[in-house]
Design a protein around this nucleic acid. Structure first.
Length: 350
DNA sequence: AAGCCGTGGGA
DNA sequence: TTCCCAAGGCT
């Protein structure tokens, strides 16, 4: 057997973590964990996984939930399309597969929210099928050990790493193989200041021998961030406030928010007071305007303020806005940004 | 194909 | 503070 894999496997037997999704091989839980862990650190995803399993022990439980409830449970994890696709896929498995998780690669890959990586991970870990899972960890480990400098975010690079990973998994225990490589990348061969001094592969690692560790893997694309200016209006009607569901092709799709005024440029408080609010009320008392809060996403920087308005309680809210009792606010899924504003206003507490 | 989709932690 | 980026997928 290849010396590279021998060492990785040996390392894995000693260093593998005792993670909640490694307690059994239930394909539902393997799939759930893989969706949660997309672009997400294990430490961040753990609690969410445990809460999902507790609330939805089987795919049938998840399928029978309302999307609002699933999004609420997902709140704070980010990339909310994962939650929407997770729920939609649960419904498909429940209805079309009779609640039994599909056990072949092509069917798994066809599920919403499941791409090449996740399909390979589920197929190998849950069903022991020999598909190479190529995630960020494996790009890093392979690029360093074999000295591959093709950008991992290019189509050429993806193909190259996919083929190499396919050769490596041949004849191995698929689930153990994929997990050992990922775990090695996650704990030993980490992105910044990896533990080369006590690495079992240091003698044969191309990057270490050639002082390329900090330069690998190579990425070529840099994401540009655009600035947006959000002005949230808190309409305080005494016992209740107004919420709004975010629809359309934008961030935080299907989450709730306070009625929003968006501008391309920053407004001063005096400009803000002259602007048309999302809803016009006959009598308004401006309690306060918050300071500007900067909310940073991977591709956007949102500059936001909260305008706290006290309005008459006996006033019909214009649809599709919904009037929500203050004690029920925490039942609605909201972005971290809205959650913070609500919190600072003394609302939405559990 | 390239841009979009969140959040939090660490250096 | 600023930057990188983590078990990617969709359009």
């Amino acid at each position: 057997m290849d010396n590279f894999l021998t060492n990785i496997y040996k390392w894995y037997n000693i260093n593998r973590r005792d993670l909640p999704w490694r307690k059994d091989r239930d394909p539902y839980k393997i799939w759930l964990s893989e969706i949660i862990l997309q672009q997400t650190r294990v430490e961040q995803g753990k609690n969410y996984f445990n809460r999902f399993v507790k609330n939805y022990p089987t795919v049938n439980h998840l399928a029978n939930a309302h999307e609002d409830e699933v999004l609420k449970l997902w709140q704070g994890l980010g990339y909310y399309s994962r939650a929407r696709n997770l729920h939609a896929t649960a419904k498909i498995i429940d209805a079309q597969y009779n609640g039994i998780f599909p056990n072949d690669y092509k069917s798994i890959l066809a599920l919403k929210g499941v791409g090449p990586y996740t399909a390979a991970a589920v197929a190998s870990i849950a069903f022991n099928l020999p598909y190479p899972a190529v995630d960020g960890n494996i790009y890093r480990v392979l690029s360093r050990y074999y000295g591959i400098q093709t950008p991992i975010d290019s189509s050429k690079g993806k193909k190259e790493f996919q083929e190499l990973a396919g050769e490596l998994i041949r004849g191995q225990n698929p689930g153990m193989h994929n997990q050992s490589l990922m775990e090695f990348g996650a704990l030993q061969c980490v992105p910044k200041s990896p533990q080369c001094s006590n690495c079992p592969l240091v003698d044969s690692c191309f990057a270490f021998k050639n002082r390329l560790v900090t330069h690998l893997p190579v990425k070529e694309k840099k994401t540009k961030q655009r600035h947006r200016y959000f002005y949230y209006y808190l309409y305080d009607m005494g016992d209740s406030i107004l919420l709004d569901k975010r629809l359309g092709n934008d961030i935080w799709q299907n989450l709730y928010q306070l009625p929003l005024l968006e501008r391309e440029k920053a407004l001063s408080d005096s400009e803000l007071l002259k602007s048309d609010p999302p809803i016009k009320y006959p009598e308004v008392n401006i309690k306060y305007i918050s300071g500007q809060k900067k909310h940073i996403l991977s591709h956007q920087i949102i500059h936001a303020k909260l305008i706290y308005l006290e309005v008459q309680p006996n006033f019909n809210n214009p649809l599709p806005l919904i009037r929500v009792n203050k004690k029920d606010i925490s039942k609605f899924a909201v972005s971290r940004l809205v959650e913070q504003f609500l919190h600072e206003a003394g609302l939405g507490l559990e």
